[in-house]
Design a protein around this nucleic acid. Structure first.
Length: 300
RNA sequence: GGAGGGGUAGCGAAGUGGCCAAACGCAGAUGACUGUAAAUCAUUUCCCAUCGGGUUCGGCGGUUCAAAUCCGUCCCCCUCCA
């Protein structure tokens, strides 16, 4: 099986820096696993690494599409698998770096996304959520058991899927397709939250407002890019209903909550090896621990 | 000094004798998640505990079978008049 090193963890924990160091020590190439950094133009708000910071290490799957172009897990899965293949063929170690757990899981595990047949998307706007859930219970009882009756977004998707490829025959229990090592970076909660708050302040100084204005003008209603934290919060501000300070507070709040959700996903969906990079620990020491994990797994 | 309004769980805010450990909002904590995932959704938040129990609604004291809710008194806050 192909080896893949995964570097995950919550936002603002320090993945970008450690990825760079790891890549240079392990002859690795970095593959983005962040659902928002695939968009061109989301720079400051997503804390995307800049070309001059990349230290000559190849970075893949950043800036794939414009903000008005839809992108989803299925596309990511395909691109990421191709990329892993290519990096491996070059004799390098693919390092998947990012916070979007679903993207990583769909790539490394046996997730199937049937090819869409280009049929008209169903419209559910006139139905109540209760009615939609009842429909799903009839059309795909198994899928219905997998989601909460209030989760309209997932119910709609399930109905769409049923229309395209029929009901679920069994609940999928995906297996891993790669020889993957999951390293998660972590820090004490309070320290992480401080870093998040500080990072948002810095982003404002770097011109987040201008970037957001630009992005919001370019991305259509409902597009994924305008759901990104650090951008959508500006909407009420540009409409004159919120102060800049309130925008900043809200971005910090949303980012903190996002970080918690990421912890939940990473901790529960993968066999993680957590490395504490906080508490004033020297990066060299943390890196050393990561290298040990790598050696222990792929001893060489 | 006088008149009036108010003090409810982390914050805001309902409740005005029993159905109140106390609605609701916010914030926090926990979790779910195979095509929007930086999305969407759920649970939970006085204390101990499995049922269940023990302390709460500014303090103290009363009335009552029963009080956050009624009475007395004290403390604190706000507005207005002096």
């Amino acid at each position: 099986m192909i080896r893949v090193l995964v570097l995950g963890g919550p936002t603002a924990v320090g993945k970008t820096e450690y990825a760079l160091a790891l890549a240079s020590r392990l002859q690795g190439e970095i593959i983005n696993a962040d659902s928002m950094q695939v968009y061109r133009g989301l720079e400051i708000g997503t804390a995307k690494i800049r070309p001059e910071e990349q230290q000559g290490i190849p970075h893949h799957l950043f800036d794939l599409v414009d903000v008005d172009t839809p992108f989803d897990v299925a596309q990511y899965q395909m691109r990421a698998r191709e990329c892993i293949q290519a990096v491996t063929a070059r004799g390098h170690l693919p390092i998947l770096v990012g916070g979007t757990g679903l993207y990583v899981r769909a790539t490394l595990f046996d997730y199937h996304f049937p090819i869409k047949e280009g049929n008209v998307p169903l419209s559910f706007s006139n139905e109540t959520t209760v009615a939609l859930y009842e429909q799903l219970q009839v059309l795909d009882p198994l899928a219905a058991t997998q989601m909460h009756p209030n989760n309209r977004q997932r119910i709609e998707r399930a109905l769409q899927r049923v229309a395209e490829s029929g009901p679920l025959k069994e609940i999928p229990r995906p297996s891993m397709l790669y020889d993957a090592l999951f390293v998660g970076l972590t820090r004490p909660r309070e320290e992480l939250y401080d870093r998040i708050n500080q990072r948002v302040l810095t982003q404002f100084q770097q011109g987040l407002e201008q970037e957001a204005q630009h992005i919001l003008a370019q991305s259509p209603q409902g597009s994924t890019a305008r759901q990104a934290i650090g951008y959508k919060e500006f909407i009420p501000y540009f409409e004159g209903q919120m102060t800049l300070q309130e925008v900043q507070d809200t971005i910090q709040l949303h980012t903190r909550r996002y970080a918690k959700r990421q912890y939940t996903w990473w901790a529960h969906q993968f066999p993680m090896h957590w490395i504490d990079v906080g508490n004033g620990r020297a990066p060299s020491e943390a890196l050393c621990e990561m290298e040990k994990l790598v050696k222990a797994k792929w001893s060489q």
